[in-house]
C-alpha cells in the first residue's frame, strides 16, 4: 500500500510549486493548473508528499493512505 495524492482543481492557483518540488509526481496543464501524474505518487514517499502538500500556498494538495495521515 502507498499514499495517494490529489490536487483540488478548484483551489489550485497554478503556482507551479509542486511541479518544481517533484516533477515526477506533479505537472501543470496547458491552462496552468497542477495535476498529479498517473501513478506519480509512486515516485515519492508519503513523508515527501506530505511535505509538498504543506508547502502548497493554496492548500490544494491532499495526501491520503498508509503512513501519510491526512492533510
Amino acid at each position: 500500500m502507498r499514499a495517494a495524492v490529489r490536487v483540488d482543481r478548484t483551489l489550485c492557483y497554478g503556482t507551479g510549486l509542486c511541479e518544481a518540488m517533484a516533477p515526477a509526481v506533479f505537472s501543470l496543464t496547458d491552462e496552468g493548473y497542477a495535476v498529479a501524474r498517473p501513478a506519480g505518487d509512486r515516485a515519492a514517499g508519503p513523508e515527501r508528499l506530505r511535505e509538498i502538500a504543506e508547502c502548497c500556498p493554496a492548500g490544494a494538495i491532499t495526501v491520503t493512505g498508509p503512513g501519510a495521515g491526512t492533510t
Binding site: Y13, G14, T15, G16, L17, A20, E31, Y33, P57, A58
Partner: peptide, 18 residues
Amino acid sequence: SPRHVAFGHGLHNCIGAA
C-alpha cells in the same frame, strides 16, 4: 485571463500571495 506570473512561479513563488 490565463494565470499571470506577478507572484513569480515555481519553488519561490510569493509565499504571501494569499
